[in-house]
Amino acid sequence: MQAVKRILVVIDPSQTEQVALKRASLIASFIESELHLLVCENREDYTPLLQELADQMKAAGITCGFSQSWHNGLTETINRTVVREGCGLVVKQHLPDSALRKALLTPEDWKLLRYCPAPVLMVKNSESWIKGNVLAAIDLGNHDDQHHVLHDTIVSHAAEISEMIDGALHLISAHPAPMLSSADPTFQLRETIACSYQDASAEYLNKYAITQDRLHIDEGPADTLIPFVANKIGASVTVIGTVGRKGIAGALIGNTAEVVLDQLNTDVLVLKPDDTLDHLESLLEK
């Protein structure tokens, strides 16, 4: 996160409290980055609001620019601004859609998580992060190089946030139920699966001084276990990742982050591998 030089903050003029800006200013102060405020709108001029918010940031010692634009939808507007302004992080308030709307249309925030060429922090509430718990969600059962790099990125970002807020870092990984028919003896018994995941977690426990009481390894689907543990420990932010698939539709996020987005009471930081981010940026440049 220290490499982020500019943060894009999506401003929602309909909201009286700009909680995304509150989060972004905290991060910008810690990593000494700039902010760029964006209103995605073409029906009304919000320059006075943007100028007021930018002046507040400048008074707090944060370099801040702003713009207002619209390109065929919210997600495309944000993505084009990310590329144009060279932003390394997007911060946006998440307002959940109704069940009916989600059944009929893909939620706009899901599209942003799928196609944004930068990490995305979805802000769920205005509660303080200070001295809170940070939950890093990884899949210790995947050992390929791409997953390993993504796991390192997730835990390192979570550790940076934990340091920033003087909080506690927690690690979670869900494992599958045992299968007697599995060709790998490790996955035939619940105890051996748990031991395997425990062994795989050792490098992160040692590197980031994570104690056993802050390690959460359990059986079950990740999209159920992650919200359960996050709510149990009262996490302030959950950090999750996805390995994208390249193809006609671009990079598609695994649905875990999308499903947990509305189930979590915490803010959610979603990360992608560098090659996926590069692919998404190249699509925007075509």
Rank of each mutant, 00 (worst) to 15 (best):
G132L: 03
D199S: 05
M179P: 07
L113P: 11
D97Q: 14
Q198L: 04
E163R: 11
V91Q: 11
A194V: 13
A177I: 14
C195S: 15
A183D: 15
K131Q: 14
H151F: 02
M164S: 08
K124G: 03
A202T: 15
V83E: 03
E127C: 06
L121I: 01
L205R: 15
E127W: 05
P96S: 09
D199N: 12
R84F: 04
K102I: 09
Q146F: 08
A158Q: 00
C87D: 12
W129R: 03
K207T: 15
L205K: 11
D166V: 04
E127V: 13
H94D: 06
L74A: 10
R101A: 06
P117T: 14
V82A: 06
R80T: 14
S162Q: 10
Q212E: 14
I138T: 13
K111N: 07
C116F: 05
R80H: 12
P117Q: 05
T211K: 11
Y115A: 09
R80Y: 02
P96K: 06
K207G: 02
I165V: 15
S98K: 01
L104A: 01
A159H: 11
A137Y: 11
A168T: 15
H71Y: 10
A136E: 00
K102R: 12
G132M: 02
T211H: 13
D144F: 01
I154C: 09
Y197P: 01
I138A: 01
L180S: 14
T192F: 02
Q188E: 07
P178V: 08
D213Q: 10
L150R: 05
V123F: 07
G141M: 08
Y208A: 03
I138F: 03
S156W: 01
A159M: 06
W110S: 03
